[in-house]
Amino acid sequence: MSWRFDRPLFTLADDDMNKDTQHVWEHESLGGIAENNNPLPRPIITLLLLTYFTAMAITFPLYGQRPNGEIYADYVSLMSSTEVQKILSNKNISHEQADKQAMALIEESLAQFDSPYTFQRIQHPIGMDKLRALAPEIIELQTKGVDLREYNVIGHHLVLANFEGNLKANGEPERLQPWWDKGYTIAVWWFIVFCFAVIIVVKRLPHFSWRPDHSIAH
């Protein structure tokens, strides 16, 4: 039918090009990804590097992870303070205003103290309604004496987090995300191995030619 097998396709390369290719093959470094054999234009290499750093940055667990109960524990204790209760029971203003003012007061007082949760509180702002719903559960867990950091806020409930990895002294899994187990450690390792693999493979594979080489048995 269509392909003529008695007339092999011809290569587009002439002898000089082949010689040149062989020279490149024998002298290139880094597998030749960045040199000679039509390297990627610099802007594109930059784009690839940017991709890597973006991947790390935007998926870093600071963002998009659920808040834990501990960051609201202080809100709950401040909510029952007399100043806040006074605002909340003020009949002269509407409920929404009271809630807003009370929350503003709580946040203002929290700003007075250093807290490891300042950033997370900005990430996960809370309204008075939700705080009211959460408060009994937070208090209940506090009286039980459990670590509130092990509990995630999902909706208006505190739920034991999915994190695993470390064990507590009593053999139960610790529901905190271990530093070594954020998915990142694997990703970084994976990326390094990828770079090595590409360089080894690219360096070890033959250059490409249409021309059959009958001098070597495949």
Partner: peptide
């Protein structure tokens, strides 16, 4: 440069796919 070069590629391919399935 003969077919043995592809053996390295095949090994790397097998290793990466297995490693990928090990992790995922």
């Amino acid at each position: 440069m003969a077919f043995r070069e592809y053996k390295i590629g095949c090994w790397m391919f097998g290793i990466s796919l297995s490693a990928s399935m090990f992790v995922t």
